[in-house]
């Protein structure tokens, strides 16, 4: 038996040990970020979720001005927590487009009546087709789209007051 060979099992284990140690101190991040950042939005046309509001389509977002795209659903609990921050953005003059996932008009109306309506337009995505096409993996999620219709930033989870400064900075960068 070669002398180095007898250390092989210990070395193999030591490697595993280091791996485990590192894995413990970096707990797995359950978030799956989109790979579509920096890419143009796919062509889509989502029908209006409510009779008195517009639907959402790609053409609207290529009008030279940036847009904030919010993906939500009335059945999603954390989506209700966003309302404050979204309202603040709406008041700051940011156009917020919304995609409602697997939702019904009556439920959306109830949701908006209860938490306020920061949206300029709401399209309904019954089969999550647009959501999947832009690499979003849940609700709520938000995307910043620049004037050419390119996805510039993804925010996963509810937008809270504490996220606003960062979002506004990125917004200004896109606008500039």
């Amino acid at each position: 038996m070669k002398p180095w060979l007898k250390w092989l099992p210990l070395v193999a284990f030591a490697l595993c040990f280091v791996l485990f140690r590192l894995a413990l101190s970096h707990p797995e991040n359950p978030v799956v970020p989109s790979k579509q950042i920096g890419k143009p939005l796919p062509e889509f046309h989502l029908p209006a979720a409510l009779p008195d509001m517009a639907g959402v389509e790609t053409r609207q977002m290529k009008d030279g001005k940036p847009h904030f795209l919010n993906i939500f659903a009335s059945w999603c609990v954390p989506c209700a927590q966003e309302s404050g921050a979204l309202m603040a953005m709406h008041d700051a003059g940011i156009p917020i487009m919304a995609i409602a996932i697997r939702d019904k008009p009556a439920d959306i109306t109830r949701f908006l009546n209860r938490y306020g309506n920061p949206y300029q337009a709401i399209g309904v995505d019954q089969g999550s087709q647009v959501q999947l096409a832009i690499g979003s993996s849940g609700v709520p999620e938000s995307f910043l789209i620049d004037g050419q219709g390119v996805i510039r930033y993804q925010h996963i989870g509810a937008v809270t007051e504490s996220d606003l400064p960062q979002l506004m900075t990125i917004w200004r960068q896109i606008t500039a």
Binding site: M1, P3, K6, W7, P9, L10, F13, A14, F20
Partner: peptide, 17 residues
């Protein structure tokens, strides 16, 4: 894990000769 497996494998390396 480190104590038991590492210990046993170190013992192995030292004594197996």
């Amino acid at each position: 894990l480190g104590l038991y497996i590492g210990g046993a494998l170190a013992l192995f390396a030292l004594k197996i000769g």
